[in-house]
Design a protein around this nucleic acid. Sequence first.
DNA 1: CTCGTTGATTATCATTTGATAACTAAATGG
DNA 2: CCATTTAGTTATCAAATGATAATCAACGAG
Lengths: 143, 143
Amino acid sequence: MDKAVLFQKFVTFAAAVHEVTHELTKDIKPDDITPVQYSILEYIAVSQPVTLSQISDCKHISMPNTSRELKKLTEKNLCEKFDVAEDRRKQLIRLSAAGQTMMDETFQQIGGRFLNRIKDASAEELETINRALDVLQSKVFYE
Amino acid sequence: MDKAVLFQKFVTFAAAVHEVTHELTKDIKPDDITPVQYSILEYIAVSQPVTLSQISDCKHISMPNTSRELKKLTEKNLCEKFDVAEDRRKQLIRLSAAGQTMMDETFQQIGGRFLNRIKDASAEELETINRALDVLQSKVFYE
DNA sequence: CTCGTTGATTATCATTTGATAACTAAATGG
DNA sequence: CCATTTAGTTATCAAATGATAATCAACGAG
């Protein structure tokens, strides 16, 4: 397997993933939430509870800007901050009840579109897809 | 294979792809070019020659904004516009020599990082990765 | 105890991006 | 032909994002 060819395929593949992700999520993002705010909410939803620093690191947003956006999200009652007993500098962030409901609904819709996308796949194909995801995740898209 | 589980894996996977893509490309983008401009250049590099409308469609940027950004790129001598004989409304966009050189170097660097990422994979593993890319591209990330 | 580091906040500013309206020119379809 | 559609441009405005400096409190190592 020529590695240069593999790189070519990787480039095409990454573009396709971005495009499909966009396709699955477009027009779903709830009103009054900017793209960056949505991506933060998504991250919180999957990884909660998280600290501000974690959000900053993982989403590549500076601390001041993370703090600003999180403040807005808190003001919109979509997430909540909790003090950490062991380290009083830190704050843990979780989705509020309203935020959880909102993200649940969002994932519900995205999931629906995803299912529609794979609706023609047979059981064996689904198994193949599953293994392919594992392979790539561990060998290429790790860390 | 439970489809809901597959969706969960898809979400994690898409996030990993985004993250690794970011990792591979960060700090490489040449000076004086905004992220959106870079993504346009990338698209032109892979698909040239393209029309303004194609860029607008594929990158989800409105025509006025596409026109504006393309004008800036043209002023920076990174791409060139050509009239189309058959339809004088249209314009084909290509990278200029300088733009081509710049993008070649960029891809060179990204490719280096990619190779480093898969450097421990055996020949069989590379073949497995290759097939996994094909499977996902055709069954999940199509279109 | 003190110094350096970490986690977070506020304020401010420049830049980038997105959105809209108004317009030209060329094609296309009755 | 004339109306409509397509391709692209320009101008303008608002909003989102990124970057920086200054600050504060709490922790941790020596």
